[in-house]
Amino acid sequence: MENLEGLEKEKTKRKKEYHKPLNKKTIRKKLNSSKYLLILFAPVLLYYLIFHYVPMFGIVIAFKDYNLFKGVLESEWVGLKYFQMFIESPDFFNLLRNTFLLGLYNFIFGFPIPIIFALLLNELKNMYFKRFVQTLSYLPHFISNVVVASMVVVFLSPSGIINRLISFLGIEPLNWMIMPEMFRTIFVTSEIWQHMGWEAIIYLAALTSISPQLYEAAEIDGAGRFAKLWYITLPGILPAIFIVGILNIGKVLEIGFEKVFLLYNPVTYETADIISTYVYRVGLVQGNYSYATAIGLFLGVISFIFLFGANYLSKRFGQESLW
């Protein structure tokens, strides 16, 4: 209780400080005393302004008919024309569905697997074996998307190793990369293969912070392996599971452009084409800048709501958040 009161006091104190009227003198004083820090910060500030904030203002071309020669400011306003065009386009529903489904499947399968992997590793008593498996499992995380996609495509080629393996089971060779119904499975599997070990790190860290005394006490009380798992291990990593889960839901729509772009082809567009790859083709390949910006903004706004909501939730539940 005391702590809570103290915390409240601290909070109001901070609020007061924050709302202290700043007069020109104090600002100038503060500016002067941190002038060297500002010099150190200047390159980062410039970077964020040029490569993040100027593009944000560049979004206005979504509401204009951007003309290369007239420039951003001089081009004519067209209001919501391009948004309407996108929503009415025959690709709209498909793109929205593909983006959502790919993200959703990636979450449903990609989220629990690292947890299970960490729990399994945690059961190992042999430290050398544990370290060996763990160290090996990060490896694919450092391999580029181009390499992973190349491996996938060559392994799944008509004469590739996967087809040779399934031919032992009497299955005819398939041309996997041109089967739209296989795209999501291939994508999600490759994502799991690539990132499972890496994503388990946070859970393994949480597992090591559980006090061994808890386990010893439970053993004295006669708890078995599963009782310990259920009553000690899982509650111990629940906060980590919770925060990672919420943040991952927030990132559902932020599917890696590179991987999809490298794995898809016109034959699989019907399941593989997502909003960001579509933006690339409409904008950079066809040069339709305004339309592509409008589509990008459409995704950006939905994605923002997801991320913001996720962060709000995790803050609400007293967990860490992005800010």
Binding site: L45, M56, G58, V279, G283, G296, F304
Partner: peptide, 22 residues
């Protein structure tokens, strides 16, 4: 400054506006 930096995680100009700046 911190808010300004963290905000870029949540929202950005997107592919095309960034391309035009570059």
């Amino acid at each position: 400054f911190m808010i300004m930096i963290v905000f870029t995680i949540l929202f950005g100009g997107g592919m095309i506006p960034t391309f035009l700046v570059v």
